[in-house]
Design a protein around this nucleic acid. Structure first.
Length: 267
DNA sequence: TACATATGATCAT
DNA sequence: TGATCCTATGTAA
């Protein structure tokens, strides 16, 4: 689940549900018991997202969460919640609202200096109002690595993961192997605009839907069947939705990338 | 019961 | 580049 759209969505939902309240904070699993004790009983002031990072502001400290590949939050009604699973790292409760976190790569208290340092490593975030596509272009122009690899580099542009990389490159007709610095100004601008639109749509819907409804024979985006929400991701061996050419996949940047050889020529 | 799998990132070599 | 960490879920045995 967790690309940037998921992170920003959690920030929004958790802010709405929990900000301005005193929270019972605990670590059923025990691995975050010390940090939970510091926050327990304090008011959550705000929740902030940058790229794939979340920051929960409490007076005593800021809680920093990165979901990694496996992490996920789940929300329960306190009264009817099942017992926490063995992997429940963090639990935050206010009244009837219970939020549980399992499987994160990071769940720790972070001081201002460490956060400042972290933020210097994070590139422009397409889901923030201050997103700067020009700055992304500057950073891409310095990379000779393949655009498919550079799109996953969080210091160049933050929040893009393996699904959106494949889908954005397909939509823009760019082959993943093209060196980033060889892309034209127009290509980079289109790519940024596409990523912004895709992540925003994903944040709003709570799921990734990158196909144009017309390409799968429906009129509204919400009517796109679950099996037909993407163009190329995990569709190796299947026909392209636009041209019927067989989708191919290979390893790029230690992750599997997918592309249509015809819609995305190497140029 | 075991294994494969996944939308991530870091560290050692 | 490869090993490693983290969890839940679905399928195979």
């Amino acid at each position: 689940m967790p690309e940037g759209h998921t992170i920003h969505r959690y920030a929004r939902l958790h802010r709405r549900a929990l900000a301005g309240r005193r929270l019972a904070v605990s670590s059923p699993q025990g691995r975050f018991a010390g940090g939970a004790a510091v926050l327990d009983g304090h008011e959550l002031d705000d929740v902030d997202a940058l790229g794939k990072h979340l920051f929960y502001r409490f007076a005593p400290a800021t809680l920093h969460v990165h979901l990694g590949l496996f992490g996920r939050f789940r929300r329960f009604a306190s009264a009817t919640a099942p017992p926490p699973t063995a992997g429940t790292r963090l639990q935050m409760v206010s009244g009837d609202v219970m939020i549980r976190l399992a499987g994160p790569t990071a769940c720790d208290l972070i001081d201002d200096e460490a956060e400042r340092l972290l933020r210097t490593r994070i590139g422009p975030d397409p889901l923030r109002r201050d997103f700067d596509a020009t700055e992304v272009a500057v950073r891409m122009a310095r990379r000779r690595a393949a655009i498919g690899q550079v799109l996953l580099d969080q210091s160049v542009i933050s929040g893009v993961g393996n699904v959106y990389r494949a889908e954005a490159l397909f939509t823009c007709g760019i082959h993943p192997d093209v060196p980033a610095r060889d892309l034209g100004t127009d290509d980079v601008a289109a790519l940024c605009a596409t990523v912004v639109a895709m992540l925003r749509a994903g944040e709003r819907a709570g799921r990734i839907v990158t196909v144009e409804p017309a390409d799968v024979g429906v009129t509204a985006r919400r009517d796109v069947p679950s099996a037909e929400r993407v163009y190329v991701y995990k569709r190796a061996g299947l026909p392209c939705r636009r041209c019927t050419t067989t989708i191919v996949s290979w390893e790029l940047g230690a992750r599997t990338v997918f592309a249509c050889p015809r819609c995305q020529p190497r140029r």
